[in-house]
Simulated scan of single mutants.
Amino acid sequence: MTEANFPVWVWFAIALGSVIIVGLAFYAGRLLAQLKAQNQRRDQALAKRNENLHESIVTIAKAMEQRQCPLSEGALRLVVLLDLRVESTQAGYAKKYPSLHDMYERIKHMPTHEARKQYPKAEIRKMDNEREGYEKELENVILQDVRQLLKDFA
């Protein structure tokens, strides 16, 4: 059977199949372009978020280094902010800054803000004394971690 002997319906089916294939290819191309644009927007948003986190981390670390922020409060904030960074799982911040994480682990159970108001003053005083004791105990090593963090984030 030669090309000239194909019935009309075969030529019609080939043409229809070609149109469908071209249409699907066009649709797939549009979907890929949309996906690429979506990924770019996501990457830009993550970069902006990391930039804001970076700025906050540096600001808190500088405040701790200059004694404008209590070490315990700074450690709480820094550990949370470091954990929010995109690369936090691969970066191993707990190993890089062990004293900050140690302080965090010691005081994370203590209530803050409005939750503190629900406790009797004697209980709050007891927790504050405990926290301040940890600050005195870990002061030098926390400040070493803070200085290292500032070097790493410079």
Rank of each mutant, 00 (worst) to 15 (best):
L24K: 03
L24T: 11
A25L: 07
A25P: 00
F26L: 11
F26N: 04
F26W: 15
Y27A: 09
Y27P: 01
Y27E: 05
A28I: 03
A28V: 01
A28P: 03
A28Y: 03
A28R: 10
G29Q: 13
R30M: 13
L31I: 14
L31M: 14
A33L: 11
Q34W: 06
Q34F: 01
Q34G: 10
Q34I: 09
L35N: 13
K36E: 13
K36T: 06
A37I: 02
A37V: 02
Q38G: 08
Q38I: 05
Q38Y: 14
Q38K: 15
N39S: 07
N39E: 00
R41D: 00
Q44Y: 11
L46Q: 10
L46C: 09
L46P: 08
A47Q: 06
R49A: 13
R49M: 14
R49H: 13
N50Q: 02
N50V: 09
N52H: 05
N52M: 04
L53Y: 11
L53M: 07
H54F: 15
E55R: 06
E55M: 06
S56K: 07
V58Y: 01
T59I: 03
T59H: 11
T59M: 12
I60L: 10
I60P: 01
A61Y: 02
K62R: 15
A63Y: 06
A63L: 05
A63M: 12
E65Y: 13
R67L: 09
R67K: 09
R67A: 15
Q68G: 12
Q68M: 13
C69L: 12
P70Q: 05
L71Y: 06
L71R: 04
E73W: 05
G74T: 01
A75K: 01
A75C: 13
L76H: 10
R77D: 00
R77T: 00
V79H: 03
V80G: 04
V80T: 12
L81S: 02
R85F: 02
R85I: 02
E87Q: 11
E87C: 13
E87G: 12
S88M: 10
S88I: 11
T89W: 06
Q90V: 08
Q90W: 13
Q90R: 13
A91F: 04
A91I: 03
G92C: 03
Y93N: 07
Y93E: 03
K95N: 07
K96D: 04
Y97D: 06
Y97I: 08
Y97A: 02
Y97Q: 06
Y97M: 04
P98Y: 03
L100F: 11
D102K: 15
M103P: 06
M103D: 08
Y104P: 02
Y104K: 10
Y104H: 15
E105A: 14
R106K: 15
I107Q: 07
H109E: 10
H109L: 04
M110Y: 12
P111W: 01
T112M: 08
T112G: 00
T112P: 00
H113N: 11
H113E: 04
R116N: 08
K117S: 14
K117M: 14
K117V: 11
Q118C: 02
P120C: 12
K121L: 14
K121H: 04
K121M: 08
E123K: 08
E123W: 08
E123L: 10
E123Y: 12
E123A: 12
I124V: 14
R125M: 11
K126Q: 13
K126H: 14
M127I: 03
M127E: 06
D128S: 04
D128E: 03
E130S: 10
E130T: 15
E132L: 14
E132N: 13
G133K: 15
G133M: 12
E135I: 08
E135R: 05
